[in-house]
Design a protein around this nucleic acid. Structure first.
Length: 415
DNA sequence: TCTGGGGTCCTAGGACCC
DNA sequence: TCTGGGGTCCTAGGACCC
């Protein structure tokens, strides 16, 4: 007998736009987009016109002239997203949050309290609807992959339970792009050989799948198509990296552009690392040129860092190296900084003499300790008076902030 | 379809060590 | 000095996810 279907995947429907329609009832039933210059989220009514997130506002307006743009109530997104996840947590402690609006849960241990998984899922949906006013779709299955697919099939505002005895029948009818790990590239490659459903994929030989997608991806998709999903629910995953990026439009690749941008990005990243005492050893930068081709450069240090100015300087060196390798590229469209190899927990105070002397040497600076102290001072002022009260601000940066910082925060993972 | 931002994982080649 | 094998770490690029 097959194991019971106890994995749930819950996903709030068109989350940001739905919150806007909740806060402003006159928007209900209408095409709504959060954002302005760029669409950050779209309601179902707007999606029906082809409007989607990331789309330039002008293009969206062209597709849907009656589209209503709203600025976005970012703190409400955070509050309501947290509240919805908390409802799930009221049933089981085994919750793996994927993003602000999505989570897996395993209810195997609480059916004696709340009933069968399908009843639990229905109860969660009812509570989120009545207490928060939001629609949340839920998939119930024996594995994460199947539960995730089921919740997508359930949208909008639905519940789909995959009976363990009918899994392959359910799976094999569906289009390949619903599979976890099939994106635009894989989808195009499969399309080229006439494969459009998961069932067709499953019937390919492992050889041809490997030839098409490589050994790892081929094997993974083969396994998933036969419903062998090895992924376990992981309730407390820690972030493995933290980063920030800024799209620049089209800017000359000169120091007056690069330096203030990197300082701003380093400030965002290093502040987060310090707040959670998680400095990191590897610094990676990405430079995207005007033609949208991008390159990365990285370096791994002996000791972890989280000092704003030092991170900015290391990033600058890496960007310079990347530009030097591409002398023909005179314009850039994006800069990014990411820090990885994060420490689990680093006692900054105890590391003061040793770790920071190391950092300071590495950055060619005699003043590492002073900078550390300056960062801590800035962090404290911001804790009390807000981010913009103090910092490395520069008038040039105002151009850089194409997306509100409050919106960026929503996508940040907990370190 | 060419558009923003924060992430994860995989791969391949090379350096280096035993 | 040459040869072989295994393991780990680093770097760069790429696909994918929300």
């Amino acid at each position: 007998m097959a194991a019971a279907a106890t994995i749930l995947h819950a996903d709030l429907d068109a989350f940001y736009a739905s919150v806007e329609q909740l806060l402003e009832p006159s928007l209900q039933g209408k095409p709504v987009a959060v954002g302005g210059g760029v669409v950050l989220a779209a309601s179902y009514e707007a999606k029906a016109f082809g409007v989607h997130s990331g789309m330039p506002g002008r293009e969206a307006r062209r597709l849907c002239p009656q589209l209503i743009f709203v600025g976005g109530h970012f703190s409400d997104y955070q509050r309501l997203g947290d509240a919805a996840i908390k409802v799930i947590g009221d049933f089981t402690p085994l919750v793996e949050r994927i993003s602000i609006d999505e989570a897996f849960a395993d209810v195997a241990g609480c059916t004696h309290l709340f009933g069968a998984p399908a009843e639990i899922a229905a109860a969660m949906r009812r509570r989120v609807r009545t207490e928060l006013g939001l629609a949340i779709s839920v998939g119930v299955a024996r594995t994460k992959h199947l539960a995730k697919i089921a919740s997508q099939v359930a949208k909008p505002d639905g519940l789909v339970v995959v009976d363990p005895d009918a899994e392959l029948g359910f799976l094999h009818e569906l289009p390949v792009e619903l599979m976890w790990g099939v994106g635009p590239v894989t989808r195009t490659r499969l399309d080229a050989i006439g494969v459009s459903t998961i069932g067709q994929l499953a019937r390919l030989s492992e050889r041809s799948l490997t030839r098409l997608l490589g050994p790892a991806a081929g094997e993974k998709l083969a396994a998933l198509s036969w419903n062998r999903d090895p992924r376990q629910l992981k309730p407390h995953r820690r972030a493995r990296s933290a980063g920030a990026q800024s799209a620049l439009g089209r800017k000359p690749a000169i120091e007056q552009v690069i330096r203030p941008t990197l300082l701003h990005l380093a400030d965002r990243v290093a502040t987060r690392l310090r707040a959670k005492s998680r400095p990191g050893r590897t610094v990676t930068v990405r430079v995207r040129f005007a033609d949208l081709k991008s390159v990365t450069r990285s370096m791994t240090l002996d000791a972890p860092i989280c000092t704003t100015v030092i991170l900015a300087r290391l990033a600058e060196n890496l960007v310079r190296a990347a530009l030097a390798d591409h002398p023909g590229e005179k314009f850039i469209s994006l800069l990014a900084i990411s820090v990885s190899h994060l420490e689990e927990h680093w006692d900054l105070a105890l590391e003061l003499p040793l770790g920071l002397a190391d950092e300071a040497l590495r950055a060619g600076s005699p003043a590492g300790i002073a900078r550390w102290a300056a960062d801590r001072a800035i962090d404290k002022v911001r804790d009390r008076f807000g981010w913009d009260a103090i910092g490395y601000g520069s008038a040039a940066l105002e151009l850089v902030r194409s997306v509100p910082d409050d919106f960026r925060k929503l996508a940040e993972k907990d370190l």
